[in-house]
Design a protein around this nucleic acid. Sequence first.
DNA 1: TCGCTGATCATCT
DNA 2: GATGATCAGCGAA
Length: 210
Amino acid sequence: MGAGGLALNLRTFLARPALQVAPELLGATVRVDSAEGAVLIRLTEVEAYEGPADPASHAFRGPTRRTAVMFGPPGRLYVYFSYGMHWCVNVVCQPDGTAGAVLLRAADVVEGIELVRRRRPGVRAERDLARGPARLAASLGLTGHDDGTDLLDPSSRAQLVTGRRTAEICNGPRVGISAGAELPWRFWLSGAPSVSRFRPGKTRSGRLTT
DNA sequence: TCGCTGATCATCT
DNA sequence: GATGATCAGCGAA
């Protein structure tokens, strides 16, 4: 098959608002190669961050040195350092010149689980390996060094492969933000064991439509 | 299972 | 100088 054509379709797929792209990324896989081996994960939870219109987005106040990648072409990784100790990974959306990104919040490890366990010693449950944005980044071995990596360039060590969804999609409020927290822009696969347990709002009966 | 807290630093005001 | 798209560990219920 023509890898170039596939990449072109993916580019078009990603050059849309994050709100549209985010739910469709669920079930897709991300592969990251390294000297130690490859790790393959299947996305189970994501969050949409739009551009300047979204008060919770890093792009809210326009482009800065850190957020420059978000304003560039779609299909690249936006990796940022958070809370002084964690890395978080986004996939850039929207056409070149417009900001938007999808935060990768959780995933199931499909391949390379031995390597992931070496990277995350002390984690027992398999579902916890990549549950949460910082854990996901750690599992993949991604850091600020990978900021700007083009997921659609075959020579990149990180690759995005669209996949078939196998479960229903749920949505709800985003996690860990103050502004725009009421927007239901977090999406996850129903019943996926690796989905974050965080439920902001403290509503115990936070049952979302099936 | 839930809720609180400390750790720790790049980025921006 | 303040802030944060977080996590792990702890104690209480």
